[in-house]
């Protein structure tokens, strides 16, 4: 049904491009716009945008396996761009980033293996959607709750800055402590490696950079100062996403470089304008907007899981 539509578009405007790995023809303008819109949002909110790109690609009929691996590839471009800016400002804790990265590489390796396994079992699409629904739903709801509270407070004339995290929690009682100078932090490497591994695992299964989990986890769990959080997170995302892309390309052959490039082009352009708009909006308004967006994507994915599919049968290449 959708195939007929694509053919009609192709004959009409001649903007279609054939994606070699996804193995379908798509409208170039739509992909550039998609990349641009997500880039705009990511610039505005200071997030990588991988968590929006992958579901959008799935909505656009790109096979989930390709959407995930290509999402990881696309994330590199926007994160690299952002990380450069933070390097210039000196807001990257390289040592902390390296430890996170070591965990990330391990987590990503496991993730790619699980990815291949789920794909062979025919459960990849389901798990990817479920993970998105759970993570986006939870984070969207938390952010919404927090930002609405902040907006109310702002209305009453109170302080609008994020609550200053407490000085100590269980994380700080773990052994193997290491000093991270740039972050003025003296903390055990266990939670840092663990966090990195967890994000790396999600990166390879969901095709995200993981910034949307990494940033709050660094602030609330590790108590990293807010000024180095985003730079450090971007720094390690570049490497984890690069690692994930290469592993996906070598084991699953699901990275579509044409698709990724179109998204990147739109993305880097959109991000610049998004950042300008973002500077004019207030923090809690931004967070409320992003939360709303995240919730919409989560709900849309959840609905697809519950609605009877057009055909209960599906075909996939078999493995003998």
């Amino acid at each position: 049904m959708s195939r007929v539509g694509v053919v009609a578009i192709r004959r009409g405007i001649r903007v279609s491009i054939y994606l070699p790995i996804a193995e379908l023809s798509v409208n170039m303008i739509i992909l550039l716009a998609m990349g641009g819109a997500v880039g705009f949002l990511s610039g505005m909110f200071g997030v990588g945008g991988g968590f929006l790109i992958t579901p959008l690609l799935i909505f656009y009929n790109i096979p989930p396996a390709v959407a995930v691996a290509t999402g990881a590839n696309q994330v590199i471009a926007s994160s690299f761009s952002g990380a450069l800016a933070h390097f210039k400002r000196g807001t990257v804790d390289i040592k902390l980033g390296m430890v996170l990265l070591a965990g990330g590489v391990a987590g990503s390796s496991v993730g790619v293996y699980v990815f291949a396994l789920l794909r062979a079992l025919g459960q990849l699409d389901l798990i990817v959607s479920l993970l998105y629904v759970v993570f986006l739903g939870t984070i969207g709801a938390l952010m919404m709750w927090e930002s609405i509270g902040a907006l109310r407070k702002a209305g009453k004339g109170g302080s609008t800055t994020l609550k200053k995290p407490g000085q100590h929690n269980w994380v700080h009682r773990l052994p193997l402590k290491v000093r991270f100078r740039a972050s003025k932090l003296f903390v055990s490497v266990i939670p840092v490696l663990g966090l990195g591994a967890f994000i790396g695992f999600l990166a390879s299964i969901m095709g995200v950079g993981g910034g949307f989990i990494m940033v709050p986890a660094m602030i609330y769990l590790l108590k990293v100062p807010t000024n180095v959080v985003i730079g450090t997170s971007l720094f390690q995302i570049v490497f984890v996403a690069a690692f994930t892309t290469i592993v996906h390309a070598s084991t699953n052959q699901t990275v579509d470089v044409v698709l990724a490039f179109l998204l990147m082009l739109g993305g880097v352009a959109g991000a610049q304008y998004g950042a300008k708009v973002g500077q004019r909006l207030r923090g809690e308004q931004l967070r409320a907007l992003l939360a709303g967006l995240v919730l919409i994507v989560a709900i849309r994915l959840a609905v697809d899981l519950f609605v009877r599919p057009a055909d209960v049968y599906s075909l996939a290449p078999g493995v003998l």
Partner: peptide
Amino acid sequence: YGFFYGVFAVILAVITGWIGR
């Protein structure tokens, strides 16, 4: 050449991000 293809994809992304900046 899955591995080299992956490396190429990464380099392309880095260059795009850099040029974009």
